[in-house]
Amino acid sequence: MTDTILEVQNLKKHYNQNGGLFSAFKGKENVIPAVDDVSFYIKEKETMGLVGETGCGKTTIGRTLLKLIPATSGKIIFNGTDITHLSAAQFRPFRKKIQMIFQDLDAALNPKMRIKAILQEALTVHCRLSDAEIDHRISELLEMVNLKKSKLSNFPNELSGGEKRRVGIARTLAVGARFIVADEPTSALDVSIQAQVVNLLRDLQKELRLSYLFISHDLRVVELVSHKVAVMYLGQIVEMGLAGRIANAPRHPYTAVLWSSLVDKKSDESIKNEGNPNEGQWGVFDFERPNVGCRFAPRCPVYHAKNRPTICTDPATSPQLQKIDDAHQVRCHFPL
């Protein structure tokens, strides 16, 4: 039996949008629920994929897990310890285990440090090592991520995108991470390099028994690497289940739309064309009308096909994440 390494319960992250100079007089605050009531768990050696469009809150979840931003409410349990309310100093030992691969290739590496110094720093954050040990560990890491030794004396801006990504991965491994939040690890890379990185991440998982939270907008890559997939829409998980099920038989209309738009651009014309082309409201949380039932309703082909039933838009009956199958949850009144 494998154990749960990370559990997230009812995680919420709300941003207050300051309404400008006179917001105090307006008497209301605009709250954007970037992450709204998200729960999931990840087991050891498991990859959980998190898919969604820009602004759906997937990156916010990753950053909250690493306590780079504080959660509004909810619980994050890592290896049996509730880490939600730990102070920075108390949380520091956990940083050895939880690491993140940042989306932005250039930005995550200090531009004025040579690659060797970057790796050396990561190795010595949590433990003291002698110089010989450091050299040994660095060459080990380089081998693991397939990076040439000659690159050690380079600065980050002298590396190509793929190499930067490898350095980023090597750094998380240097710390000794067991659980890695991979935030769009391939989106900034060229197609030919993407495949290398995806393969590398999978190899490392096997070798080092890592667990991943794999965040991406590309459903294909997520399906490929993940054991479990959660699809997010405007801060909520709308569908979650085993990877194969999500790919083969999506139950939420949004997943179906997402899937058809990716895998085969020709298929499922019906789903594509029924959607309201009203892109003005797409993907952005509209705080003028918060919590009006299902958040996907304005774009939902099923909602339009069923002649806009009120159950979808009534705040009192906003859909909940229900188990419809073994290990398959959907937030929809009319699952496909």
Partner: peptide
């Protein structure tokens, strides 16, 4: 652009 919008622009 997001995947769903990409496919709309393509069509």
């Amino acid at each position: 652009l997001d995947a769903t919008i990409q496919s709309k622009i393509v069509s």
